[in-house]
Write a protein that binds this DNA or RNA. Structure first.
Lengths: 151, 151
DNA sequence: CTCGTTGCAAAGGATTTGCACAAGT
DNA sequence: ACTTGTGCAAATCCTTTGCAACGAG
């Protein structure tokens, strides 16, 4: 279904250099994060189960969590909290900022550069080093605004 | 302990106009949100218990949750997700934006105006109406940056 | 008196943890 | 072989829900 070379394999490198092991589950989880642009741990687990087919075994939920955490420490994936109890993970390769519609839940990606001004200001005013990758903005999308004003 | 006039009583108004009732618990929860600048439902519950003293009864956890939700619908309080599983509530009267330190968890308040530029840009580019009140930015605070670079 | 509200306890969903076994190196 | 990683199940954490009793209007 998928070609196995999605990753330029920095994964193996990263792992070896830390005495960690390259397992099938690790590769699959990373693959899933890349495939689902914005996936919650649960969605990732589901995707893996689907990919595995009726017979193949998918990584256990706890393994998914453990590996997402690991991959994040390795800098290969990132997560953002978009709202209540639903962190979404995305590959670190395409940095982007999330904007979530508070009404329909739709997620849009935005160029992180829109936050440059804010980052500078926070650095100057508070000494904060802003982590743009973890920022989730919330608002109402065009469609929902239109729908809302109809009623 | 407290003067009972913290609120210009828009609460009673809001409630009556919707056929809802003004209860002691409701007033206390609103009071707690105002007192704790950034309180999680749990912290609010704790604060209420402390205020009540050893004998007085504090509102039940479920009541706290129910009323926070209600107060939010009434537009009297707002909540933000600062990270995993801990939404914080704050009075709608002092609009501010939260910046959380990813390392120490410290919360700083920032003038929402820093986001004006971003809001305009999102409106123009995506038709989004940005909800500045729900935005939580994440980064590393001055102290943690200093501590981090020491090691 | 009537219906919104509360308290309590149990149900739920999401994530984490302990442990023995399986698997990378 | 040695040690890390995995699966499974139990444990947590946070939040929600059902229901009988309570209290505001």
């Amino acid at each position: 279904m998928a070609d196995h070379d999605h990753e330029p394999v920095p994964l193996a490198q990263q792992l070896r250099s830390r005495g960690l092991r390259l397992t099938t589950q690790r590769q699959r989880v990373l693959e899933a994060v890349g495939a689902l642009e914005h996936g919650t741990p649960e969605q990732i687990g589901t995707w893996l189960a689907e990919q595995a087919g009726p017979d193949g075994a998918a990584p256990d939920t706890s393994t998914v969590y453990r590996n997402l955490e690991l991959l994040e420490r390795l800098g290969l994936v990132w997560h953002t909290h978009l709202g209540k109890g639903a962190p979404v993970y995305h590959a670190a390769q395409h940095p982007h900022l999330h904007v979530v519609c508070a009404v329909c839940g739709r997620i849009d990606s935005v160029d992180p550069a829109v936050m440059d001004g804010v980052a500078e200001r926070l650095a100057a005013d508070l000494g904060y080093s802003l982590d743009v990758g973890h920022v989730a903005l919330s608002g109402t999308c065009r469609d929902c605004r239109a729908a809302g004003s109809e009623s």
